[in-house]
């Protein structure tokens, strides 16, 4: 007997970072740690640490929302050559 089910949080094994063709570059000197990028990231790939915003590139799909919502323009999107 198998009850079809999935274990909690196991989607984190999907490294969706491989999808992106651009990625955020965070200028830590400008970052004010407001958390706008982390709050709006659809992937939940951004963490605010004591040094500022940190992107987990395993999951970042490169949408660019973080750069758009950053109030101090600390994030720029750079193209990735594949």
């Amino acid at each position: 007997m198998i009850i079809p089910h999935a274990k909690p949080g196991t989607a984190s094994k999907n490294k969706t970072g491989s999808w992106r063709d651009q990625e955020p570059d965070i200028n830590k000197n400008k970052c004010i740690k407001c958390g706008m990028c982390a709050t709006h990231c659809p992937e939940g790939a951004i963490e605010i640490t004591k040094d500022g915003a940190e992107v987990n590139y395993d999951y970042c799909k490169g949408c660019g929302i973080c750069a758009e919502v950053c109030p101090v323009k600390a994030i720029t999107m750079r193209k990735i050559k594949k």
């Binding site: 007997m1 198998i2 009850i3 079809p4 089910h5 999935a6 274990k7 909690p8």
Partner: peptide
């Protein structure tokens, strides 16, 4: 004890669940 029920199954799994139901 959180679990996910009512999953979406791709061709590599769907038939195996149906087979298990039939066996049971």
């Amino acid at each position: 004890n959180p679990i996910t029920l009512g999953v979406y199954a791709k061709p590599e799994h769907y038939q195996d669940f149906r087979n298990d139901l039939d066996d049971d």
